[in-house]
Design a protein around this nucleic acid. Sequence first.
DNA 1: ATAATAATATAGTCTAGACTAACTTTAATT
DNA 2: AATTAAAGTTAGTCTAGACTATATTATTAT
Lengths: 147, 147
Amino acid sequence: MSKAVTAALRGTRAQEDYLEQILTLIEDKGYARVVDIARNLGIAQASVTGMIQRMDTDGLVTYEKYRGVILTQAGEDIARAIVRRHESLAEFFALFGLDEKSIYDDIEGIEHHMSQPILATIQALTGELERQPALLERVKKKMAGSG
Amino acid sequence: MSKAVTAALRGTRAQEDYLEQILTLIEDKGYARVVDIARNLGIAQASVTGMIQRMDTDGLVTYEKYRGVILTQAGEDIARAIVRRHESLAEFFALFGLDEKSIYDDIEGIEHHMSQPILATIQALTGELERQPALLERVKKKMAGSG
DNA sequence: ATAATAATATAGTCTAGACTAACTTTAATT
DNA sequence: AATTAAAGTTAGTCTAGACTATATTATTAT
């Protein structure tokens, strides 16, 4: 019996974007600064400060003035779920030779709307298709015609 | 040379939901009333009136007080693009035996974030997988384990 | 240690998009 | 035709989430 890891926790769309970004920064550099979050999300620093304060209130991050942000367990759970969805999608669409540079942008937004059944389908299908190079080639050919 | 039918027109997320709903109502019953839009989207009538007025200003619908709403060409283009995306997704995930009743809800939201490459991939892949019953069966089995 | 710079925070404003309550218009019933 | 019910509108409020301008704190360089 696997534990119920998939808590049904969800932030707002915007909060999920922040959480995803914060987790990425922490894993990459060890900490998440307001200035980096702002740059990566393309919004103003002051907006980030405001949002972080709201997310602290909501129990998604722990925030201390001038001392940076860390994720609460709840926040980290959501962040990991989002990252997992984004990565699953990227891995899936990479099968079809989509431009590596643009895949991430093309997917952007979908990860916030992936139900568990959809995620499970994508993951299972990815595993199968990896063993079907001929099929993948045919799909790529078709796509060339509709691009 | 095919004409550039895929205009890059986009409304906001909320506007796309309204447009999708209005088009569906018009095709189903011949007209779109505020009360039906409100019920189907689960929001208050007054909110619908307000949004429709904004969408008239934005050139997405034509609105006359007390006389209902019709789509402009721009609005219809967006609506059809959204419906097409939603249907393509539904058709795709139906391949894997997901519960017909819940597919539509599971997909909800994704259609607003589907870039052209993603759409083309899904459509091409759907065509191929229809001819791969054995592969589809294997995917279904895998999913049973992760659901 | 102080001055300059970078990072962060606060205050106040704006827009989208929802709400409720109250009013008006249209449609249906008698 | 008058009344009632249903549909639609208006007015005013609220929240999320962005913005700019200004202030404060931390950090770096001298």
